[in-house]
């Protein structure tokens, strides 16, 4: 704790340079992971590069291709309260409104909640289900990475040293989406969370993406569920049957939920999220 250094970056370029050239540098966004235990005591002699003063990192707006572009420093509360998100991406608004508590939502950021690939983060699953693109900027320039490729393993991401998330772009493709969460009673994070996006073609499931968080080591697409739903008429029976395909994953456990219980919750929440997504798609 004592050894932490601090730099407020004035621009994205400065932040990237600082992060790339300072040993042990970490980006500081809302600080609601970094500055709290148990993370804080692991910071050692890190230099924290504050992104808070950089202009333009918290805008929400449509791109020319009709995707919603959300700056990495957008707070979770701003996501929850944004009318475009509420209308077009209800799963994201629902997830954001259920993150932690009001104070956390006020200051924690979109970028910060993605960058660590925290296994209990709500938003990772939502971005998987909504097929989001993460735009990154690093010492070698900018690139876009699909959420599927961004998450690479337990607490691992495609981010390289010095690279930052600048914004997230989510295509608005019609259909319906929903997020279902079972709160961890102590942390308020997701003990299990499921995000679903469904579009219907002639009353049958067309494109469909479903992802789970909290229950697994990292947010994971439930491709088995997606496959089971594809082309089906989304009746309660069909959805229930498809939820059974949410299996074969490595589930996490703690005193508030064993791996078996989280596996079960995943199936239940898949049914609930898909059912609501279908209703919205109709």
């Amino acid at each position: 704790m004592l050894a932490i250094q601090y730099k407020a970056a004035q621009s994205l370029d400065e932040a990237v340079t600082l992060l790339a050239t300072t040993a042990g540098a970490r980006a500081l966004a809302g600080g609601h992971t970094l500055l709290l235990e148990p993370t804080r005591s692991q910071l050692g002699a890190a230099t924290l590069v504050d992104l808070g003063k950089i202009q333009g990192l918290n805008d929400i707006g449509f791109t020319r291709t009709g995707a919603l572009r959300i700056g990495a420093m957008t707070t979770i509360a701003a996501l929850a309260d944004n009318a475009d998100i509420q209308r077009d991406l209800p799963a994201l608004a629902e997830a954001a409104s259920q993150v932690g508590d009001p104070q956390v939502r006020n200051w924690a950021t979109l970028g910060g909640s993605l960058a660590d690939n925290d296994p209990e983060s709500d938003l990772t699953a939502v971005l998987l289900a909504l097929d989001a693109q993460l735009h990154l900027q690093g010492p070698n320039g900018t690139r876009a990475v699909a959420a599927d490729q961004f998450i690479t393993g337990p607490r691992q991401t495609a981010l390289t040293q010095g690279e930052l998330i600048t914004d997230v772009r989510i295509p608005i493709v019609g259909g319906g989406s929903a997020y279902e969460k079972f709160k961890h009673p102590a942390t308020l994070y997701a003990l299990c969370g499921v995000a679903a996006h469904v579009s219907l073609i002639d009353g049958k499931v067309g494109a469909c993406r479903v992802a789970v968080t909290g229950a697994t080591e990292y947010a994971t697409r439930l491709t088995g569920v997606e496959a089971a739903l594809a082309g089906q008429e989304p009746t309660a029976e069909a959805i229930a049957a498809a939820s059974e395909a949410a299996s074969g994953l490595a589930f996490r456990g703690d005193p508030f939920g064993s791996p078996e219980y989280r596996a079960h919750l995943t199936r239940v929440l898949v049914q609930r999220a898909v059912t609501r997504a279908v209703e919205r798609a109709r």
Binding site: L36, P102, T187
Partner: peptide, 29 residues
């Protein structure tokens, strides 16, 4: 130390914030 209790909640620019999850340096401005 972990951000749960909210005893440290203050207003920053009128918005409620847990002051244990923020550096003094971040309050600049």
């Amino acid at each position: 130390e972990t951000g749960q209790c909210g005893a440290c909640t203050i207003l920053v620019d009128g918005i409620s914030a847990k002051s244990c999850a923020m550096l003094a340096a971040q309050a600049d401005g």
